[in-house]
Design a protein around this nucleic acid. Sequence first.
DNA 1: ATGGTGGCCCGGCCA
Length: 256
Amino acid sequence: MRIATWNVNSLKARLARVEEWLADVQPDVVCLQETKLADGAFPAMAFQALGYDSVHHGEGRWNGVAILSRVGLDNPVNGFGPEDPDPQARLIWATCGGVRIASAYVPNGRSLDDDHYQYKLRWLARLRDQLAASEDPAQAIIVAGDYNIAPTDADVWDPKHFVDATHTSRPERDALAELESWGLIDTFRLLQPEPRLYSWWDYRAGRFHKHEGMRIDLVMGTQSVADRVTFATIDRNARKGQQPSDHAPVIIDIAD
DNA sequence: ATGGTGGCCCGGCCA
């Protein structure tokens, strides 16, 4: 089973590229982030025509997450559940091909002194609480998405550039470590240990062409998923050419 | 780089 995560930075602006990419890469499950669509505008029929069932949790102008699947799509849940709603559309769950899968768009944080940074840390803690309350780490579970955290300095083009900035701060990395202590593993790193492999490059200052990016898009899976990973890559081709997202897809294959 | 580019959609906000 091939599983991918991709922050598309507007599905309206990116639909043609996403359709082309689906035909080329042939993923079984795709977690999308930043669709920037209301649910009524989500192009479910375009995906159905390509063989994918889909669920979307959107709010319109900002955020928005989706899961596409051609291996079944059951028991969808939006966010942290009805009793404790998140005002922003950043998380959706579904069961696909026997794996409980979440598409997550972790808040950016903006800056260390911004209220949005505290929202980011609380959001990550709530994700951890949801896992602890509702999921069993002995099962096959994947939380894939844009974490807006570079796990280590090996995931950043220039750590000095991010001193006193978000994405590399100790509290953010501690929050990621809390997810790992529950039982999630950075599956990409199991097969790709070398440093300076990135999934996001700022549109500005020619960062992509200078190979100056960060690895902030992660496929976090439980041990039973990690044991089955046979292939992992970042599809840099999707960051090239006309009107790319600023993120590239991360792709994982797991054995049946 | 208190810049830069690109999404939202037309004045800023967000990344």
